[in-house]
Amino acid sequence: MSCESVTRDMPLYLYGELAPEEEERLEAHVHGCEACRRELDCQKRLHRALDEHAVEVEPALLAGCRTDLMRAVRHMDTPKAARPGWKETLFGFWNSLGAMRQPVGALALVALGFFAARFSMRPPSQQSGAAVTPEAYAYTIRSVQPDASGRVQIALDETRRRTMVGGMDDENIRRLLLAAARDEANPGLRVDSIDLLKSHAGSAVVRDALVTALLRDPNAGVRLKALEGLKNFASGPETRQALAQVLLTDENPGVRVQAIDMLMQQRDESLVGVLQNLIQKEDNNYVRLKCQTALQEMNASVGTF
C-alpha cells in the first residue's frame, strides 16, 4: 500500500467507512511509516477541531419552531370560511344583541370592575399547608348570553398566577413539580423540577416521572438529571429496561455513558446482550471504549456470533 493511497483513504478510515481488511492494511502501513503516522495525527486533530465547530441548537429555538409549526398546521386545517377576523366576530356579536346592547355593555363594565378589584385586593390564602399568594389575574370571556329578565350570563376562562411555598413532602408542591417536569415549552423549568424531584425517587410516582423524562425529554440536561435521580434504583427492572433503551436510542453520548455506568452496578446476562448490540451501532469512540471495558469486566466477548 503506497503512502499516496493511505493518505487518500485516511478520511474514510477516520469516518469508519473502510472495509475491515482495508482498515487493517492502512493501520499496518501507518504503524511502519513515520510520515503517514504524522499525517494521520494531523487529520485526527483536524477532526477534533471540526467537532468543536458543531452547532448546538438552543432548546428555545426548537420550542419556538414547534409552536410555529403547529400553529401553521392548525391554520392549514381550518377552512378559510371558518376563519373570521376578530373584528368581524366582535361586531357580529354586538349587532346580534339588538336592544340588549345597553344592559350587556353595562354588565360587562361591572364585571370588568369586579375582576379588577379582585386582581388588586385579593388577600393571600392557605391551601393544603402550602402558602399561596396571588400575583396576577387574567381572564378571557368566551360567551355573553342575555336572558329574558335583562340579566346576562357570561362564561369566562380565568388564568391566575400564584406563588406556592411548601416543603417537598407537601402533596400539592409535588403534584405541581410533576406537572412542571412535563412542561414542553420550558426546558429550564423541567431541569429545575426534575432536580428537585430526584431526591424523592423513593416514591413510585416520582420514579415514573424520572423514567418518562429519561426516555422522552428532548433536552439532554433534563435526561441527565433524571438519570441522577434513578441512580439508587438502577437495579429495579423498570429502571434497567429504561436504561437499556437509553443506551440504544439516546442521541447524547454523555447520557449513554451514564446509563452504562448505572447498568454496570448490577451485572447480568441480559446486559451483555445490550452492550454487544450497542457496540455494533455505536459511533462515539468513548462510548464504544466504555462498552468494551464493561464487556471485558464481565468476561464477555465484544462481538456477537
Binding site: 477516520l14 443506551l247 440504544l248 436510542t249 453520548p253 451501532k281 459511533d283
Partner: peptide, 15 residues
C-alpha cells in the same frame, strides 16, 4: 465524529 447517529439509527430501525 458523529455523536448522534448510530444510536438514533438503531432506534429508527427498531421503531
Amino acid at each position: 465524529m458523529d455523536p448522534h447517529a448510530a444510536a438514533a439509527a438503531g432506534a429508527r430501525v427498531a421503531a
